[in-house]
Amino acid sequence: MKIRKASITHDYESVWSIFSAVVQTGDTYAYPPETTMTEMKTYWFADAMTTFVIEEDGNILGTYIIKPNQPGLGNHIANCGYMVAPRAHGRGIGKKLCEHSIAFARESGYKGIQFNIVVSTNEVALRLWQKSGFRITGITPKGFRHKELGFVDTYVMFREL
């Protein structure tokens, strides 16, 4: 498997396939389930962020973004988002993307990584982030409208670099 910077020209449709499958579930990301392919561009390929993909034999299995969490005096902390193709779940893709993002953030001069909204019911992600050195630093009660469970808490998670 290889992780590389995504090309909007070559990888856009593959990333869209993953993005749309993930957000349509309505259980892990705040993006609207009906997000269009055009709208995804502003969420996943904006100028202020770097987008990566992980591929195997020419197939994109996952993607992540990294960007400053805040502008100006808060730009020393990174923010990331990760998505794995449903067909690739259980293969350690999320772990590989997280490890890559930590290394990339360090190389880029970030002092930490913050996740602003981790859905409390996303137990797989919570375990992975905690194993990767992130800790819960805040809770937003009922901060997410889960498609099936209704209002659930969200966490802010942080890892110092």
Rank of each mutant, 00 (worst) to 15 (best):
C98E: 13
I117E: 08
N122Q: 09
L61G: 01
I77C: 12
T9K: 12
D47A: 04
A105G: 14
H76M: 01
Q130S: 14
G62C: 05
L97H: 11
V152H: 09
T121A: 07
T35G: 05
L161H: 09
G72E: 08
M157N: 05
F144C: 10
A21R: 06
G81A: 15
V23N: 06
H146C: 08
A6T: 04
S20R: 14
T137L: 01
N116W: 02
T51W: 03
M157W: 00
K5M: 07
T42I: 00
R127V: 06
L161R: 02
T42Y: 01
A105W: 00
P68Y: 10
S14R: 09
A30Q: 11
M37R: 14
I93R: 13
Y155W: 06
T140H: 13
V22T: 10
W16G: 12
F144W: 04
E107Q: 15
G92A: 11
K147W: 01
Q130P: 06
G109N: 08
H146W: 03
N122S: 10
L161E: 12
E160C: 07
N69A: 12
E39C: 04
V84T: 15
I60C: 12
I93N: 13
D27G: 02
I113A: 02
L128T: 11
V119A: 10
W129Y: 15
A103L: 05
V23I: 14
T25L: 07
I54R: 03
T51K: 03
P32G: 03
A21T: 06
G150T: 06
F115P: 00
D153C: 02
E123W: 04
A6L: 02
A78N: 05
N122R: 09
H146Q: 04
F52L: 03
P86E: 13
N122D: 15
F45M: 00
M40N: 02
K111S: 12
T38C: 00
H146N: 13
L97Y: 06
Q114N: 15
G150N: 12
S120G: 14
I66A: 05
A85C: 05
R135A: 13
M157P: 03
L161V: 05
A103S: 15
S108K: 15
H76S: 11
G81F: 01
E34M: 00
G143I: 03
T42R: 09
Y12C: 02
I18A: 02
D57C: 01
G143W: 07
W16Q: 03
G92V: 01
K2M: 04
K2P: 00
D57R: 04
F45R: 08
A88F: 07
F115L: 15
I102Q: 15
Q70G: 06
D27C: 08
H146S: 02
S20F: 02
S14V: 00
G72S: 07
I65L: 11
V23P: 10
I136A: 07
W44I: 06
K96W: 07
M1K: 11
V23G: 10
H89S: 10
H10V: 01
R145A: 09
P86G: 11
Y64L: 05
A30L: 02
S14P: 00
T38G: 04
G62W: 03
Y12A: 06
P68T: 07
Y31I: 09
E160T: 08
D153K: 08
V119F: 04
K95C: 02
V152T: 11
T35P: 02
T154M: 02
S20H: 14
E55L: 00
I139H: 08
I136F: 07
